[in-house]
Amino acid sequence: MIPQRIPSVELATRGVLECIGVDAAELPGYACCPDPVVARLMDRKMWLALSARNLALAEGMGLDLLVLCNGCYETLTEANEILRREPEARKETSDILAGLGRAYEGTVEVKHVVEVMHEEVGVGKIEKLVKRPAKLRLAVHPGCHLFREAGGGDIWRKPKQLEELALATGAEVVHCKLDRLCCGFPMMQVNEELALKRNLLPKLACYQELAVDAVVAPCPTCIVQFEAGQMLLRKYGARYNLPCLHIVEFLALALGIPAAELGLELHRSPVEQLARKMG
């Protein structure tokens, strides 16, 4: 999704990781995670095998996986869990991988960029690195899959980390009663009008009432839904023009990476104007 639809997130991630001194390598030959809703519904065996192949690629490099997307996080984390606790699924998947000349031993940890920024880098360090404090009112949309937590852990751990990262930039985070409502992207495959009117529209109305300057999300799919969805809603008479960007893009701006280097014009919401507002 990111390389094909919003490469500005890719640019921001490269910039931010360099800025904070995290050394990350690309994963040559990776395939789609694949997505945790449609692909899994279509065929669980294929979904698990493709995901296991991605994990095997990372294991082959001796590295853990950093992901920038909630969907990737859910799929890869779930696949890891399934392969650890379901012997039959592990056997079936191992046989498929063996036919490709690959194996996965289950040693890779999957980490969302929110976790890495919060736990490995630290909010304190980010606060110190902020060069362009964000004097903005932000809505933070965590997205459904950020609440996924392996082993019965605290489902609010990562959403709280996300909010703390946003606060570290100097922004004010405002809450609305629909913070946890899905953006509606998965439902778009089945019923576009329902997804737009029942999910996205109420959220946008809520954010407008709170006079937020932007929506920050940790998931490219949610961002695509917010951006394309605002355009699609015009045919139903609803006009919104709210900037929506990835948390890493927001951090990049706050850390002082020039907006011109981030490709923000590739967004379909007024993110460039937001960047200008940040100075």
């Binding site: 095998a49 493709l50 192949r53």
Partner: peptide, 22 residues
């Protein structure tokens, strides 16, 4: 550097699709 960017990776992913019957 995704699956579609090299012939070897693409062949591997397509073989996976065959082996899973998808």
């Amino acid at each position: 550097p995704a699956s579609f960017s090299s012939d070897a990776s693409l062949r591997e992913v397509q073989e996976l699709m065959r082996r899973t019957g998808f």
